[in-house]
Design a protein around this nucleic acid. Sequence first.
DNA 1: GTAGACACGCGAACGATTATCATTTCGCAA
DNA 2: TTGCGAAATGATAATCGTTCGCGTGTCTAC
Lengths: 139, 139
Amino acid sequence: MTTGKTAARRASKAREMVLDGLRQAQAFRSAQSLHMELRAAGHAIGLATVYRNLQILAEDALVDQVRVEGAEALYRVCAQDGHHHHVICRSCGRSAAVTGPDFEVWADRVATQAGYSEVRHSLEISGICRQCADAQAAP
Amino acid sequence: MTTGKTAARRASKAREMVLDGLRQAQAFRSAQSLHMELRAAGHAIGLATVYRNLQILAEDALVDQVRVEGAEALYRVCAQDGHHHHVICRSCGRSAAVTGPDFEVWADRVATQAGYSEVRHSLEISGICRQCADAQAAP
DNA sequence: GTAGACACGCGAACGATTATCATTTCGCAA
DNA sequence: TTGCGAAATGATAATCGTTCGCGTGTCTAC
């Protein structure tokens, strides 16, 4: 990697499928569940391939990748560009976008003040969405 | 201390060791490296026990637990006061505490407004500390 | 048409964490 | 002090998500 040469990202049916499967979902999906669905739909795609392409797509900023505490990584088609965050339902994966006013700036500033460079931040907000909460309350 | 309830927490040599090992570190430690060190120091402690006690200590708010993107969980003795965050050096693990403004409140509010309950959040800020940056710049 | 990349699918490997379980140790009270 | 039951322990197996290795397939460029 880092050859500097054109990435030579070749067209790929598998990548197409992964992206498509992600597009059809309203919520964040895990690599595994996406794989299962694709298999169920009759596509002979390998789990490793799903992971591979998910990574590639995340690299190309075509999908968002988040990690909920200690659980699996979740992916979703990137709605918009620019930095934004989500509230993710821990139960169903549905998410809502939230925008913090000066949060980004603040994070960067305090880290820089502390003497840190190449500052990165990751903010995850999770909860139980109303539908799931209702479903749990009334079994 | 305050053994009022059904004191489900008993004194434990292992927990003492874990806490001690953590105290001696200036930076965040992983469960595994802590275990290795304790073994190297001659203590016959099991890996599972390290994990167990780390969890217990985190529960009791005696240690901070963070998860850097996709890597292992890192632990550190808790400085003190309530909720706070850290900037962690991605290179050496050293960290600095940062205090956010009304970040906690904000996160909770936007999530609640979006209809989410049982809101949890996790904020990680990472960077390269000055020493590591210097070391990298002039090898 | 052929060579060489790149991508694929499969299954095994991997690393972090957790569960299991027989045994030890602690806290409390007799 | 001694005894008892509950909690803690350590070794190991198991789990789970993710990645690697490898032989094969497929597309591009020549």
